[in-house]
């Protein structure tokens, strides 16, 4: 069981952390939430069927994140998100080809994350799980308790809404 658990931590830990990071906007809170979810996984692992773990973990992590968000001032969370993005992007800077391109990309990534953080649920989770993490429709449907067609349609609509937000922000900056 220990081997199975460590395999699951290595396989899904990054996804969980990314989901929590994008939902909460803070590294420390994301780490705490993911740690709690994985410890819960350890306790429930004997009763979980193989192949069901990812949906279970995603549901657990998302619910924990939404609980944290409900108890927080959303405005303060957004401020932390912007500050946290700077640190996160700095950590990935080794992949960037040139400082100018990196700067432009950083701006775009920040704008994307900011717009994503302002999205309502379940659109935000759908975009994270379907577009960023590229999870299959069935797993996302199980995680969010939606039908597979609902997952597809709501993802499409959420993407359109995110596009509208980004375009609106661009227009504001130009003006």
């Amino acid at each position: 069981m220990k081997r199975r658990f460590e395999h699951l931590v290595d396989e899904h830990g990054g996804r969980l952390y990314q989901l929590a990071r994008l939902l909460l906007g803070r590294d420390d809170e994301a780490e705490d939430v993911v740690q709690d979810s994985l410890v819960k996984l350890w306790r429930h692992l004997p009763g979980l069927r193989a192949g069901q773990e990812l949906a279970w973990l995603m549901t657990c992590t998302r619910n924990a994140c939404l609980d944290v968000l409900r108890g927080k001032n959303r405005k303060r969370a957004l401020l932390w998100l912007v500050a946290g993005d700077q640190r996160a992007v700095a950590g990935d800077a080794g992949d960037e080809p040139a400082p100018e391109a990196s700067l432009a990309r950083d701006e775009r990534v920040r704008a994307l994350r900011s717009a994503l953080a302002a999205m309502p649920e379940p659109g935000r989770s759908l975009l994270i799980l379907r577009d960023i993490q590229e999870l299959d429709v069935a797993t996302v449907a199980r995680t969010l308790e939606l039908s597979e067609n609902q997952v597809k349609v709501y993802t499409f609509r959420a993407r359109r809404a995110l596009r509208a937000r980004l375009e609106e922000k661009q227009h504001e900056q130009v003006a």
Partner: peptide
Amino acid sequence: LRGLGPMRLPAAARARVVQVA
């Protein structure tokens, strides 16, 4: 959006999880 992912669980967080488990 696909270009944003994936992320990795920080090594310190992974070590803590395994230890707690």
